[in-house]
Amino acid sequence: MKEKPLSENIIKRAMTRLLVPFIQLFAFYVIAHGDIGPGGGFQGGVILGAGFILYVITFGMDEGRKRISRTASDLLSTAGVLLFAATGFACIVAGGAYLQYASLPFSSPQLASHLAIFVIEWGIGITVAGVMITLYFLIGREVQ
């Protein structure tokens, strides 16, 4: 394949620059809106990761690593699970069972549970996005 690398194609560059912010905004919406409509951490995290992978496909691995370093994507993958698990431990500290959100000290059990679910959705989303980005960086190879 002796074509020009994708990153030199002006149309693809412009379209990617245009699309990626909207894809990522949609991903945040899906994660944050999971308690009201369809969606949630898994779907939103995958969309967040996919939006970034689109950027990496167009601009190349090196350019992508400038945007999100190896340390950053590793930290993201880890931080999500920790956030989820820490929410569970916070419930123990507040006097309930592990992941018994209603025991968290908020004005009503419903509010506590709702907020905790919101937090763990973000935890799931962050981990999924981080792992997807890591997988692409490690598995993918640039076709020059």
């Binding site: 009201i36 949630g40 989820f84 569970g88 992941l99 959100y101 059990p109 419903q110 709702h114 679910i117």
Partner: peptide, 21 residues
């Protein structure tokens, strides 16, 4: 019990929290 409107999310995040973790 969970304060969440979408009960798919309620099941995933609250009733089956261990599974999701």
């Amino acid at each position: 019990e969970t304060g969440v409107v979408n009960f798919v999310t309620a099941v995933l995040a609250s009733y089956r929290g261990y599974d999701t973790l």
